[in-house]
Write a protein that binds this DNA or RNA. Structure first.
Length: 253
DNA sequence: ATGGCATAATCCTTATGA
């Protein structure tokens, strides 16, 4: 089974890239973030035409998440249950017996800001919810744009901002890991300076000035079967790219 | 010291991203 995640930064603009990437990679599940569109604008027909169903949780202008799959998407849940939030950042579905969650974590803007406090509140609510989910879903995948670089090696050495690398954010990431969820990328040898996001400015991609903030975390029941985890930089080289690259994991069930 | 790019929504400027 192959599961991937991709922050597309506007599905309207990026739909051709998504369609091409699906055709080349045929994932069993593709988690998308930052759709930046309302549900009524979601390209259902275009994706059906390439053999993919979709569950989506959209919002005008900001946020918005989806899961695409050639197989039926069952038991769809939108948003974190019990957490009052206007922002559309979560969708979950069961695909082939695997609970798949597409998550767009808050950016946080700046350490100490109101948005940073919201990021930490949101992370705490997510962790509480997943603790319960894991009781009923042994096979679980949390994939998305975490907006956290979990270790120093996940950020370019010249990254001078605190946001995405601060201690409170990394502590919150560790709390997710403490549920038993494993950052699959680090289960395998990887190239040095592996990142999944590069700023549009300053020639950041050319200089590989990036952050690894897009992650796939898997439950213990799936971890042993994991065969690979890779970041695909090819779509970042296209005209009008997303600033994020897709991340994929392959595992045996 | 600042903003540098991209997107979407008020439009020709602003909010947000990371």
């Amino acid at each position: 089974m192959k599961i991937a995640t991709w922050n597309v930064n506007s599905l309207k603009v990026r739909l051709p890239h998504v369609i091409d990437w699906i055709a080349a990679n045929r994932p069993d599940a593709l988690c998308l973030q930052e759709l930046k569109m309302e549900d009524k604008a979601f390209p259902v027909a275009e994706l059906e035409a390439v053999g993919y169903h979709a569950a989506f949780n959209g919002q005008k202008t900001y946020n918005g998440v989806a899961i695409l799959s050639p197989a039926p998407l069952e038991a769809v849940v939108r948003d974190i249950p019990g957490f009052a939030d206007e922002q559309k950042r979560i969708i979950a579905a069961t695909i082939g017996g695997v609970r798949v969650i597409s998550a767009y974590f808050p950016n946080g803007q700046a350490v100490g800001s109101d948005k940073f406090a919201y990021k930490l509140r949101w992370l705490a609510a997510l962790t509480d919810w997943l603790r319960e989910e894991l009781k009923t879903h042994e096979r679980l995948v949390l994939a998305g744009d975490f907006n956290i670089a979990p270790e120093d090696r996940d950020a370019h050495p010249d990254w001078k901002e605190e946001i995405h690398v601060s201690a409170p954010e990394r502590t919150a990431f560790a709390a997710l890991a403490a549920l038993g969820l494993r950052d699959v990328f680090r289960q395998f040898d990887q190239p040095e300076s592996s990142y999944s996001w590069w700023d549009y400015r300053m020639g950041a991609f050319r200089r590989n000035f990036g952050l690894r903030i897009d992650h796939i975390l898997v439950s213990p029941a799936l971890c042993a079967g994991c065969r690979s985890c890779t970041i695909d930089k090819t779509p970042r080289k296209l005209e009008r790219p997303s600033d994020h690259a897709p991340v994929s994991v392959e595992f045996d069930l």
